[in-house]
Design a protein around this nucleic acid. Structure first.
Lengths: 249, 249
DNA sequence: AGGCCGCTCCCGCTGACCGGGACGCTCTCA
DNA sequence: TGAGAGCGTCCCGGTCAGCGGGAGCGGCCT
């Protein structure tokens, strides 16, 4: 499998496009040989080889024998993005409080098109039960944070009927629920952090855990309290916006 | 300040070098204008402008008005690096256990030249008291994890006398201590995760907290136990090595 | 031994990239 | 009010960094 239609990718013209295409190839597997990169990117062998070597030289990739992996410099830059995000900065202490007061896993996420991207995750106690991961993506419509974000996004009006109804309910209550929509036996309670002037959400916060031990009413008020605290903390320092969210082209 | 000697940087010749230099400029500040990038990188205005725009197009940067910031794609790639690291994967559950049993902050870090880079940090309870950060760097000689790593690194023989003596003691005991060397009032207990065949350390684990509430003897055995568990878990799945550590050119 | 596959290196050609400079905008200061 | 400084944007002719076909090599299968 993974037989991406051979060569039907438009040939990238700029150097940057070539580099991006190569780096993107590493999202699928955690270690690629030259030949694998060539197959995935459709670039000529010598071109791919040259760029891979060059990227390894600047430590954006790491080479071990004949396999390349993403390197340390990319990790450092990536974690810097998260670190510099103002909403995340304001939210982290409150996520810890939320985690401690509920004993569940607390999330912070932003919307990107139809997916959520997680910026923080506190209290990994359920191991791999939860599919969420800092820097990871999940379809928005099937997660608590995602629905909370969609409910307060410009795109809310253009969703399919069934979802639109649920989003309206979420806007009313200020809280979104997920009852094993993403993972069997797991539920979430989520609420959006709304921007200052407008009505679109900057980010969303959730707590997730085994469905049978969730007290929804209690969690709803805890999450609502948390987003209020985060909003206050964020707007205290906030002169200019500074988040990875929003601003698509 | 920050008046990097103007123009004395060697002019980068390749596109990749130029891109790297621009991205590196964002490590200092979380948001740069074109003019600031030009000053920091020494690149011609039009060149910097063209590259910045191009990077924003592929979402490696994000543009808001006239300031550029690191973008979402970089965050995603970066967190992927951490996620794909085998040692980190094996260590995380044990870091949680260590955190819960001690009530302190648990770290996982690797060595890079004379610095440590943190791969995981569990239990942020002391807020900004600890300078460690996932993806962040600190001088190795002044941290617990750093000394544990240096003690089992090839470079151990070439350190200054005083440090060399301490590293020898660490090799004997299998545990490194930090008593407010990095931060006033804070101490750490650390131990290295040693590679399979050889004697050099893959990574190191530590617990850190307020000095007055540290029971060193008890923590030492807890950390030793943890590295043993992690080693076992890591070598279970480990066919090929897969970590951001090691392999300098 | 012959075929297959993967990595590396070479080298002549060319178009992607370079960067000086023009232009327009917004401040600030005289 | 107008000159000047600083900034971002855009243009365009020249050129060299990058391109990529292909040769060479070495390992691993029949």
């Amino acid at each position: 499998m993974a037989v991406t239609t051979p060569e039907q990718l438009p040939t990238p013209v700029s150097m940057i496009d070539r580099v991006v295409r190569i780096l993107d190839a590493f999202e699928g597997a955690d270690g690629l040989t030259l030949a694998q990169v060539v197959r995935q990117t459709g670039l000529p062998r010598s071109t791919a080889h040259r760029i891979l070597e060059h990227l390894a030289e600047v430590r954006y990739l790491r080479r071990e024998e004949h396999t390349y992996r993403l390197g340390m410099r990319i990790m450092e830059l990536g974690s810097l993005v998260i670190h510099q995000d103002r909403v995340r900065e304001a939210a982290t202490p409150y996520l810890h409080r939320l985690h401690q007061s509920t004993g569940l896993v607390a999330h912070l996420a932003v919307l990107d098109a139809n997916e959520v991207v997680y910026l923080d995750k506190v209290g990994n106690r359920f191991g791999t039960l939860l599919p969420s991961r800092v820097g990871g993506r999940l379809p928005a419509a099937r997660t608590g944070v995602g629905k909370a974000l969609l409910a307060h996004a410009p795109s809310a009006a253009h969703q399919p009927e069934r979802l639109r109804a649920e989003l309206a309910r979420i806007r009313e209550r200020g809280v979104a629920y997920d009852r094993e929509e993403a993972v069997r036996g797991v539920g979430c309670v989520a609420a959006p952090v709304i921007g200052a002037g407008d009505t679109s959400a900057l980010a969303a916060i959730s707590v997730c855990g085994p469905l049978h031990q969730l007290r929804f009413a209690r969690l709803a008020s805890a999450v609502r309290q948390t987003v209020a605290d985060v909003w206050r903390a964020a707007s205290r320092n906030a002169a200019t916006p500074r988040g990875v969210a929003a601003s698509r082209r």
